[in-house]
Design a protein around this nucleic acid. Sequence first.
DNA 1: ATTACTAGCGTACGAGTAA
DNA 2: TTTACTCGTACGCTAGTAA
Lengths: 233, 233
Amino acid sequence: MTAHPAAPELGRPRRRGEELAVLKLLAHAGADQTPVVLTSRDVGARIGVSQQAADRYLLALEHRGLLVRSMARRRQRLELTPAAMAMLRAEYHGYRRIFEGPARLSLSGQVASGLGEGRYYLSQPGYVVQFAERLGYAPFPGTLNVGVGAGALRKLALLASWQGVRIDGFEASGRTFGGATCYPARVNGRSGHLIRPDRTHHRDVVEIISPENLRTKLNVHDSDTVTIELEEA
Amino acid sequence: MTAHPAAPELGRPRRRGEELAVLKLLAHAGADQTPVVLTSRDVGARIGVSQQAADRYLLALEHRGLLVRSMARRRQRLELTPAAMAMLRAEYHGYRRIFEGPARLSLSGQVASGLGEGRYYLSQPGYVVQFAERLGYAPFPGTLNVGVGAGALRKLALLASWQGVRIDGFEASGRTFGGATCYPARVNGRSGHLIRPDRTHHRDVVEIISPENLRTKLNVHDSDTVTIELEEA
DNA sequence: ATTACTAGCGTACGAGTAA
DNA sequence: TTTACTCGTACGCTAGTAA
């Protein structure tokens, strides 16, 4: 058997499970709220590895931007970053799905006028081919914009941990078109997708795409109230 | 530096994180309900390892009683065992605690007569020293027995994934005394512990221990309704 | 006491391949 | 096609130890 000198996938991070165990441990210790003092020996003991291995985990996590360490008189203080909490939340969400089933959420809002942007973006071939491939349809060239209140916005924050369907960004005609994530949705019973651009404008408006012209099919006009129902894919 | 020929902890299972990833993947694929057909190549691709490594994981999981494989014409069917689901549920519970805080549950039941067993067991020195050490008190020698309905029993099933305080079994006077798990509880506001023997009798009665004589302190008698509140330690 | 580097070696990886 | 074996290699472990 010939030896292959070129190591396959050199540098790929392994040990993902163990590093996750460290994050989980720190989260339970409250390191998401305030820095906690925990020696590398303690960390190692809790997850069943040596002080040296635990130290390497901490180093790696810090390097990956998941952990902030501050040394105070030889004693490290550990604090999880928002990125680490997002990772843990995604993990939580994954387990939740196993036992509680796919997450659903329902919200209401008022139909609002678009700025004509939707039509322009949705007509870009770079997007259209992705919609056809990944959503299974070419959307009607125009988004249904729905203005939502503070309560609905808070619910929508949960979407961050949902899977969703990725639409990748691309470049065309010398400019950049950003990526987005789509979530299967029903608006007053008619199906389509809620689409969230990566570069969100932080406005209190959500955009819906659908194979149909929702405005005419639903017979809704500006400021009419519609109900949006989302279920995890 | 001297090399130590005796390898430390030889044979200890590593890769716990990766095996958990396989269990999670299978659970999402529905392998808890019905066997799923999934090649080792598929499994490997999903968790980012080779077919060979994935196969080794499956073999190890089967060996540990977490997975049942049945070969049908070169195609393996994979099904998770209850032990695997319990493991995943414990994991879920751990994450849940991070984001939702300690679990609580509240239930009602009717005071029931004990059979005098409680007094006998609670007087055993083997138990008493453990109660004093791990609960912080020596319980009043007599349990408060509370009969509960089907709904409450279903809630109590969740206790399986709680941490609890372990009381170990032991042998004394030529007989065996079994272990138990205690959960901090309040009965009509008075604190104590709900205690669940490992060898449960599957009766619809839960037992409460407390430093005080709860019957007299609460002034309750047989068939009076009491409320039990549990919060995770 | 800490954190964290080095050395040595065992475990677990993936390639190749049998069945 | 599968599953699952052998085998060489190298990653990541722990011990020892510096700072």
